[in-house]
Amino acid sequence: MTNPWVVYLLVPMVKIVVILGAITLAAAYLSYFERRLVGFLQIRLGPNRVGWQGVLQPIADALKLFSKEDIIPTRAEKLVYLSGPVLIIVPALVVFSVIPFGPPTNLFGLLPQAIPPYLTDINVSVLFVLGVSSFGIYGIILGGWASNNKFSLMGGLRSAAQLISYEVPMGFAIVAVLLMAGSLSLVSIVEAQRQAHVWYVFPGFVAFFIYFICGVAETNRNPFDLPEAEAELVAGFHTEYSGMKFAFYFLAEYANMVVVSSMATVLFFGGWLRPFPSWGWLGFLDVVPPVVWFLAKVAAFLYCYIWFRGTFPRVRFDQLMALGWKVFLPVSLANLMVIGTLIVLFGGGR
């Protein structure tokens, strides 16, 4: 394993292919679980015809979308219109290059030495995730504008205002974690939680609450899905997109949900650590591989997403703005000051 071709080309390539494939598949199947779960929440069945209990439904949907007629509106700005789906799907997938799925592993002895299952760990991972995922908004706002449709434009503008507003309290909530962890690297944040013997959700539950609500808003999901409010805006920014171009918007939304859930897991719920990593008598839980713990936590957050969709009514736009600027922003700032003060008083001079 010292051959540079293997270390710098083959291993990263394999990881990239595996991660991209897994995320795309996960996003597709998330749509299946969403339809089934919302079906159960609304006391109906949901898709259950294609394959056993409908498990092949996402495959059938993908085939349908691939084979659909691809319409470009005649009055659209063609180049910008076509770049919209690209601009939204690329950031959504690129973010996964720094998400730490687990500690270095040798895959039960299959590999000669342990390699980390994540693609890379950079010392500004948190900012990388925030920066790259804030880029997805271009797909929405440009797609909405280039469609040359008033509903699309309204959806794009709403989305821009919403994302900018909720990025601010979300950032402050994350800063609270950074203060506790003392690092911007996601891997170090997980390790810091192991050393602190506590998941950061316990000292930072206010930050977690704000982070997750803002995450729901950032991904344009219920109850904050105003950019695509079908009762007012047809389908919002992707009204004029059809076939695979629509599928990219769809896929990106679900991939972004996985990103927010993964970040919540890493920042607040100890990443790949088992529950209560310092309690020795819970050691039997180590039988479960760390990656499975990570995926289970992410799945729990994704379930919450779908649960919200089945439960809450959509907020009004003025309520959305008031909540972001008048509630979350001051609360997240106050929380930051409280946590900073506590760290100065009891944190032991880092």
Binding site: S134, Y138, L157, A160, L163, I164, E167
Partner: peptide
């Protein structure tokens, strides 16, 4: 991520 979005807006 921020300023250009406001420009476009």
């Amino acid at each position: 991520g921020g300023i250009m979005v406001l420009f476009l807006f």
